[in-house]
């Protein structure tokens, strides 16, 4: 395959497996493959940071190793403390990869857009509360997931609706149903947070507030039509741990600073 020649996969994926690995994404930082190299009946996601030719080899090796092991360490800690994240199955930091659970489902971003896509264009009149219930419930689940993350002392560093997946539930896997039912499926499932490449450990209100601010801005630019629902995310976040209310107060400062910065520099 031409793509393979241009992007050689890590050595571990060159061994035989029940199905060939498939390249899912190619970002700036690295690539994600779906593979069954661990167990034939259990697909996993392999995150690989290939060497960067522009970097001095010693610096490159040092950074790759540190980043893979820090990401795996954060995931392990979250997993142990009950934060919804994919568990780590295996890793080789020196070779630049780690393997984790493959989340069967769609990114939250896609789910929300699918839901919104079927709404009438006007967007002026807020829909009936009952009609919006599944979307509002998703907002609550997002707030709870982020709260669980912060409670363990981890800040994500890059919270967006692309870095959250909706893990499909068994009962939602059957197709069909009425229009409203199939629409509700777009936003159903457990929220799982992924991509801890920029995560750090912190319990500071400020760092947590910045984390929320990043999500808020990402939400506003990705889903302008659902922006008003972000308050629901914050409302459910507020009840997830003791210091959450003071994080939300700090968030107001952070917002103000963000606005000032874009005006003055």
């Amino acid at each position: 395959m031409a793509a393979d020649a241009q992007f050689p996969p890590p050595k571990v994926l060159t061994y035989p497996a029940s199905a060939p690995p498939s390249l899912i994404t190619q970002g700036a930082e690295g690539r994600v493959y779906k593979t069954t190299h661990l167990l034939p009946d259990r697909p996993s996601a392999l995150k690989y940071r290939p060497p960067k030719p522009y970097r001095h080899p010693i610096l490159d090796a040092r950074l790759t190793k540190a980043r893979i092991s820090s990401e795996a360490k954060v995931l392990e800690r979250c997993w142990r403390e009950g934060v919804p994240v994919p568990p780590v199955y295996a890793m080789d930091p020196a070779a630049g990869w780690m393997m984790m659970e493959w989340i069967e489902g769609i990114p939250v971003r896609v789910g929300i857009n699918e839901w919104l896509g079927e709404r009438p264009e006007d967007g002026e009149e807020p829909a009936e509360a009952a009609e919006e219930a599944p979307l509002i419930d998703l907002m609550k689940r997002i707030g709870t997931a982020v709260g669980a993350l912060h409670r363990t002392g981890v800040v994500h560093g890059d919270l967006t609706t692309s870095n959250m997946m909706l893990r499909q539930r068994k009962e939602d896997q059957v197709n069909g149903g009425t229009g409203a039912e199939s629409k509700a499926k777009a936003v159903a499932g457990d929220v799982v947070i992924i991509d801890f490449g920029l995560a750090t450990q912190s319990m500071a209100d400020e760092d947590r507030a910045v984390d929320l601010y990043v999500l808020e801005r990402a939400f506003a630019s990705t889903h302008p039509r659902a922006e008003r629902l972000f308050a629901t995310v914050l409302e459910s976040y507020k009840h997830t741990f003791k210091k959450a209310p003071s994080v939300l107060i700090k968030l107001e400062d952070v917002r103000l600073r963000g606005r000032k910065r874009s005006m003055l520099g």
Binding site: A28, E29, K52, Y54, R55, H56, L59
Partner: peptide, 13 residues
């Protein structure tokens, strides 16, 4: 080597 690697990395992002 260090500062330029940083500049190239943020540019690539």
């Amino acid at each position: 080597e260090t500062v330029f690697a940083m500049l190239v990395e943020i540019t690539e992002r």
